[in-house]
Design a protein around this nucleic acid. Structure first.
Length: 426
RNA sequence: GUGCCCAUGGUUUAGUGGUAGAACGACGGGUUGUGGUCCCGUUAGCGAGGGUUCAAUUCCCUCUGGGCACCCCA
C-alpha cells in the first residue's frame, strides 16, 4: 500500500478557495479603506521574529506553549509571529526619535498560535492592527475608538447589531485601591472581574472573598459591578471624583456621541481586557446577535509597554480586529450574502467551433489589452453548454462569437443576470 | 493543558453482526446557436490498527482526524 498523504490543510489552518477568498478580501479591503481614511500608513513586518521577543512579554500561553518556533542553521530560535505588537514596537523603536509624531501605522497580516481550534479561533488567523504611537492625547484614544466603530459600520450592519463597551484601567485601579487589595492579588481580582458576566456571580464573590479584599471595599466593588452606574458610583464614593479614569470615560462617551455614535458606546465595568499591559482607556466591541453574542475585538491604551523592549518608552494606543470574529459577525447578520452572490467581473468567451480558435485567441488578447478580464474556452462547446458553464462558474457576461458573428464582423455580449444581448463590432 | 461529541462516495447524510441506499455535485446525454427549473445515464464510499465473532462498516479498545466548551485570546 502506498502511503496516502492527507489533502487537508494542517490543523487549525484553512484553505481559502475562491469563494472564501472573496469574503476575506472584502473584509480586508474594507478595513484598509477605513485606515487610509484616517491617514494611517500601511506597514508589514517579517512573518518570523526572534522567539525571545515573545517569550519575554507575550505571556505563558501566547509566548510559550502556543508559540510555533524553530531553530535556524545558526542556532537562533525563531518563531512565527503570534501577534503584531512586539514587531511593530520593534520597528517603531528604530524610527521613533527621528519621526514626526504621532506615528499612525496599520497592517493586515496573518499570525500563528499553536492552540486548539474552535469556533471563531484558528491556529492561523489574520488581524488588522492599527496603532497610534507618540501621543498621550485623549484624542488619539478617541480616534482609535472611532475607527473601531467605523470598521464595523463600513459593512453596513443593521441598527442595534453591535455595541462598544468602554472602561478605564485607571478606574479599576482606583477602586482596587479603595478596596485595599494586595498588590499580589490585584491581577487575580482583575481576572475575576473580567469574567463577571461569564461566570456565576456567587462563585466570583466566593473567590473574591478569598483574595483578601477589605469588607467595605468589597461591597463597593460588587455594588459597582452590579449597577454599572458610573454617576451613582461617584456620588457614593467621593474619593473617585478626582479619578482620571472616571473623567476620561465620561468625556469619551460625550465626544463619541457628539460625533454621531450615540447608542453605540456604553460604559461597562466588566470590560477589563486580558492583557496586563493596558493602563488607560480600554474597550471591546460586541456582537449583539443572540447566536453570536461575543466580543469581536478590543483595544486600548498601553503606554507602559514599549519600555519592556529596552528601547525608549513611548505612548501607544491601538486595536486589533481578527478576521474570523469579524466574519462571524457578518454572517450572523447576513451581511455576506450580497458579496457571495456577486457575479465575477470576467467575460466567458467559449470556443463555439474549432476553426474559430485563432480568431478567438486574437479577440481575447485584444479585449485583455483594453483591461477586460476574459476566460477563453479550450474545448469546443455548444452555446447551451457554454452558458450552463458560465452560469455555474458565476460569470457576469458571456461573449458569443461564432461563425455567424465573425461573418458579420461582430460579437454578442450576453448579460447573465437579465439575459439581454448587445452587439459589438470587432 | 482539561472535558464532551463526532467519523459512511467529492459534499450532506440514511442504514445494517451476513460488506451499503439517497440527495446534491462532477461528467455525458435528452437539445448539431442560447443558461439558471426538468428528465435519463455515468462516476464514486464504510478514517487506520487491534480485539470479540463462523462473519465487523455495525460491538469493544487504541490511534489518527474533525467539531465544541474551558483556559487564554482575535
Amino acid at each position: 500500500m502506498k502511503k496516502v498523504i492527507s489533502n487537508q490543510a494542517p490543523k487549525g489552518t484553512s484553505d481559502w478557495f475562491p469563494k472564501e477568498f472573496k469574503i476575506r478580501k472584502y473584509i480586508f479591503d474594507t478595513w484598509r479603506q477605513v485606515c487610509l481614511r484616517y491617514g494611517f500608513e500601511e506597514y508589514l513586518s517579517p512573518i518570523i521574529e526572534s522567539a525571545e521577543v515573545y517569550r519575554a512579554k507575550s505571556g505563558e500561553d501566547v509566548g510559550g506553549a502556543e508559540l510555533m518556533s524553530f531553530m535556524d542553521r545558526g542556532g537562533r530560535e525563531l518563531a512565527i509571529r503570534p501577534e503584531m505588537t512586539p514587531s511593530v514596537t520593534r520597528m517603531i523603536s528604530q524610527i521613533y526619535l527621528a519621526s514626526p509624531k504621532p506615528i499612525k501605522y496599520f497592517s493586515i497580516a496573518n499570525f500563528i498560535r499553536n492552540e486548539k481550534p474552535q469556533r471563531g479561533r484558528n491556529r492561523e488567523f489574520w488581524q488588522l492592527n492599527f496603532d497610534i504611537f507618540g501621543s498621550t492625547s485623549l484624542k488619539a484614544d478617541w480616534e482609535i475608538m472611532q475607527m473601531s466603530l467605523d470598521i464595523v459600520l463600513a459593512f453596513n450592519p443593521p441598527k442595534n447589531s453591535f455595541v462598544m463597551y468602554l472602561n478605564n484601567r485607571k478606574l479599576i485601579d482606583g477602586i482596587l485601591e479603595l478596596a485595599q487589595a494586595d498588590k499580589d492579588n490585584k491581577i487575580e481580582v482583575v481576572r475575576l472581574l473580567d469574567k463577571w458576566q461569564k461566570l456565576d456571580q456567587v462563585v466570583i464573590k466566593d473567590k473574591m472573598s478569598d483574595l483578601g479584599l477589605k469588607k467595605k471595599g468589597e461591597k463597593i466593588l460588587f455594588d459597582f459591578m452590579e449597577s454599572g452606574d458610573l454617576e451613582s458610583l461617584v456620588k457614593a464614593i467621593p474619593d473617585l471624583v478626582d479619578n482620571d479614569g472616571v473623567k476620561e470615560i465620561q468625556e469619551t462617551i460625550k465626544v463619541l456621541e457628539s460625533l454621531g455614535y450615540k447608542g453605540l458606546v456604553e460604559f461597562n465595568p466588566a470590560i477589563i481586557r486580558g492583557f496586563d499591559y493596558y493602563d488607560g482607556l480600554i474597550f471591546e466591541v460586541f456582537d449583539k446577535n443572540r447566536d453570536n453574542n461575543r466580543a469581536m475585538f478590543g483595544g486600548g491604551r498601553y503606554n507602559g509597554l514599549a519600555e519592556i523592549f529596552g528601547s525608549q518608552s513611548f505612548p501607544a494606543v491601538g486595536c486589533a480586529p481578527g478576521d474570523e470574529t469579524m466574519k462571524l459577525f457578518l454572517e450572523s447578520w447576513g451581511l455576506l450574502e450580497k458579496i457571495i452572490s456577486e457575479k465575477k467581473d470576467c467575460y466567458y468567451l467559449p470556443l463555439l467551433a474549432e476553426e474559430l480558435s485563432d480568431k478567438l485567441f486574437g479577440l481575447a488578447s485584444k479585449l485583455r489589452k483594453k483591461n477586460c478580464n476574459i476566460e477563453l474556452g479550450f474545448e469546443v462547446q455548444k452555446v447551451g453548454k457554454a452558458l450552463e458553464y458560465a452560469n455555474k462558474k458565476g460569470f457576469g457576461k458571456v461573449i458569443i462569437c461564432g461563425e455567424d458573428e465573425i461573418k458579420k464582423g461582430l460579437y454578442k455580449v450576453k448579460d447573465m443576470l437579465n439575459g439581454g444581448e448587445e452587439e459589438v463590432k470587432i
